[in-house]
Design a binder for these strands. Structure first.
Lengths: 199, 199
DNA sequence: GTCTATACGCCGATAGAC
DNA sequence: GTCTATCGGCGTATAGAC
């Protein structure tokens, strides 16, 4: 039983609290099932008005959320590419990151990979054309050029590889697979890499 | 340029027209971006009232749609299991069916695989526990028992196999892959089966 | 079976006092 | 930066005439 800590004094909210609450709610219930009233409750405001100090519209909250997540992922991938030279190593570390996030910050993975952001952010490019995923596609292209990955349409290689990774993560998040993501990480990597690796 | 055929006389609608229009709209714009007004327009009614002759709520439309699709898929899978004995053959035909539907009735595949029905049909079991997908899981279990599929967690085998299939179909539907589904069917099957086949 | 008319709730959003 | 108060609008749904 969780004890509600009633604050008699006025709460002071910042932009990040709103984003965190919205991320959790969007991931749990979906964007359209989440009202500003829900977000206001989650951050401990009395009315929705306070939210408008930070965001003009509900859409803007979702957009900021997506930008932040994509930016952060993009930076992580840059870092991974800097520290590793081979495509296999780079992809391996990206998989590590995604599985680690699945356990430690599932809302981020749900919002990134499984919420259909296009339904409420129609202006945004599809995930596959976002900066971080363009970088992943480039890693695969390099892997093919260097002979690490067998010769096939880079987009198909991407599709096979991340199909396995994403589907496995999805099954962890829906509890179709009973254990935490880290328990499936090594096997999923082997299957996904084996699917596109040369020889 | 499409010529609007204005009907001066009153249109008479049946349940199936509503379902077809709703399927198309839900697949295109999503459930929450589709209003009864949209559906009414699509079937050529003047007001939404006529819809209520067939469905009590908007939810009920979506639920009927899902039931119909799952039933139809379940029957197809029964048929496939009857006509083939080996897991490889059965899975191969299921893949054939899904790719064929992707080209010929993409709305069905979108609604079945890519619309998050749980957001508006929270009472329904997750796709993985629906009748047709239970049958697919059973095919995989048999494949493992018969030594066609390598020994691994049946759920992981499912995840790898359908991860590849679904992701490839998804990329066709979003035009990330430029050609029609049938062009990728053979390769995707090889990758997916190779991922779980013994030896 | 389709229409007119209407109810009504919820939600996103704004104005302005404190 | 948070509150009170309020608004307009849309979307679902209903009652009842034809």
């Amino acid at each position: 039983m969780e004890q509600e800590l009633e604050n008699t004094t006025t709460r002071t909210i910042n932009q990040d609290e709103i984003l965190q609450a919205a991320l959790r709610l969007f991931a749990q219930k979906g964007y359209f099932n989440t009202s500003l009233t829900d977000i206001k409750d989650a951050v401990g405001l009395k009315t929705t008005s306070g939210i408008y100090q930070f965001f003009k519209t509900k859409q803007a909250i979702a957009q900021t959320l997506q930008e932040n997540i994509l930016d952060s992922l993009s930076i992580s991938i840059d870092d991974i590419r800097r520290r590793n030279r081979k495509a296999s190593e780079q992809l391996r570390e990206i998989v590590d990151l995604l599985f680690k996030l699945t356990d430690e910050a599932p809302e981020i993975i749900v919002f990134l990979l499984f919420v259909k952001t296009n339904d409420f952010l129609p202006e945004q490019p599809p995930l596959l054309n976002s900066a971080p995923f363009n970088k992943i596609k480039r890693i695969i292209q390099n892997g093919i050029k260097e002979g690490e990955i067998r010769t096939l349409d880079p987009l198909l290689a991407y599709s096979y590889f991340f199909g396995i990774i994403q589907h496995t993560i999805s099954m962890v998040l829906t509890d179709a697979l009973p254990k935490s993501a880290e328990n499936y990480q090594a096997q999923a990597w082997l299957a996904a890499w084996g699917c596109i690796a040369k020889k």
